[in-house]
Amino acid sequence: MKYADFPLLGRRPFTEFSISGVLEPEPAELGEWTAARWVFERTSVPRERVEWWYHGASRLWFRVRRDTGSDTILGIEPARGEKRT
């Protein structure tokens, strides 16, 4: 069972989180991307990437930098920083 030190939460097992992949908000315009590439394309090679993790008990999202080859956590920050005022 893997653990990490999470800001705001302290040391927690990964099993308390539902792990999503790399998420981007849907842009208004796709530029040169096609709808199909935007919806389906993935880059599933061993690499460092920023993922979105959701902690159900506190209803908080976190941005987690993880190496998908070695499964090591390289950085974690709460997703909701300062609000857009």
Binding site: M1, I19, V45, E51, G69, D71
Partner: peptide, 13 residues
């Protein structure tokens, strides 16, 4: 497994 991973390690979960 719940998350993408390029490894053949086993897990207790």
């Amino acid at each position: 497994d719940p998350a993408e991973l390029h490894s053949r390690r086993s897990s207790f979960e």
